[in-house]
Design a protein around this nucleic acid. Sequence first.
DNA 1: GAGTGGTCTAGACCACGAG
DNA 2: TCGTGGTCTAGACCACTCA
Lengths: 243, 243
Amino acid sequence: MPSRRDAIADDLRDRIATGRLKPGERLPSESHLAAQYRVSTPTLRSSLAVLQVEGLVEKAHGKGNFVRRPLRRITYVGGGRTLDGQTAADTALSVTVHTTRIRAGGHLAALLKVSASSPLTEFLCLSHEGERPHSLARIYVPCDLAPATALREPLPYGGMTTQLTQLHPPLAEVRERVSVRPPTPEEASTLRISSALAVLAITRQTADTAGRVVEAALLVLPGDRADAVFTTHYVIDEKGTER
Amino acid sequence: MPSRRDAIADDLRDRIATGRLKPGERLPSESHLAAQYRVSTPTLRSSLAVLQVEGLVEKAHGKGNFVRRPLRRITYVGGGRTLDGQTAADTALSVTVHTTRIRAGGHLAALLKVSASSPLTEFLCLSHEGERPHSLARIYVPCDLAPATALREPLPYGGMTTQLTQLHPPLAEVRERVSVRPPTPEEASTLRISSALAVLAITRQTADTAGRVVEAALLVLPGDRADAVFTTHYVIDEKGTER
DNA sequence: GAGTGGTCTAGACCACGAG
DNA sequence: TCGTGGTCTAGACCACTCA
């Protein structure tokens, strides 16, 4: 037997799917809905929570619950085609970059395969699509690979990309690990997502032909809007099929 | 100011991290904990819900709340190295496969780039690691590529892999789309995960050199245990850097 | 100030698991 | 049967938004 919560969530989901509740529209207040469905407000709120993690409803404290506008999906393209990973070209993204010099701690040292406390340049990137926060990226590069001017005049977004593709030795391999987890409180607030919504977390390592890790990135994308796409081509040589 | 819920969740998380609550151990009952923390049971339950989506606590109706044993991570390796995508070799996975003949609906037809209602063979794979459900895979192959015996004697897991790598024309490209979403009720129950825990959903298309999609797969992995790893190599030719 | 959602309470009743 | 978690109630009080 379906619970009241799920039954109400199903009904509201249907009202959204069939357009009886339109994108951007405000739902009746929680107390009104609770009265309509003849349940208590906590029960009704748990129904809304279901729709919230599905990305169908957006809550705004003091204003109401709103049907989410059909969300433009974010597509992360893997494989190092764009080093920053964002399809920054087609969507008008505004990006703020903070550049800092830090020292590798335990986690970062392992990621970049450098000794602990070796100097790194951190690019902290927050991209917006209009008013809406879009994604969060922390990119780490060994200091000798980052332009010395980066601290004073931050690179434009993607500037590090062209910088790296001209390296010697050249780039050889991109390794990306995708996982899903709840956002940290900071991530939830900067991305303006509910802490109940999972994020897509991508850890990227880029290495050159000498095996040196020239870049590592920690990317965080809101789980309800983000996809990551990876394309791998098989290469045929004389001996058989390889990768 | 942190809410009571978060404060209690933080405290319990700390008790788990420092080993004062050990893996597999049963927590005090919810009413006991509520009394200890001097909150009502709904408040305490919401704290446990936080730890639950973080994968630290497991609830068992009628038995209690348990600290999760450190979970062996599932790593999906992308790029078609193993067509089934599971690292079946090193972990003792038992897999049940159900083979069915179906007709492509709208979604599947688009995925396989075939006309609607063209015949497909579906491999419904549920893998277990010991007692614990591990992952769910629905693999679709055009009927003429699936061995005719598949319906009577289901292929061993991975059998379709070797079948496909020997194709003519040979395989050319694997395209994988990773996204995160809440599980469907069926997925939640077959994978034995809470419906509040997001899953990693991977849609895979494998094409041959003629551009024909020879396989499509819908993979579902529990979000608290799963990673997906993609490795891309750059190929250098005389003209410059390519992929 | 009026209305909204956010948090929390102190219970009630039901469903499940184990002895 | 007993203790457990699962669901739900009918409120209270606070914080936020907007007129």
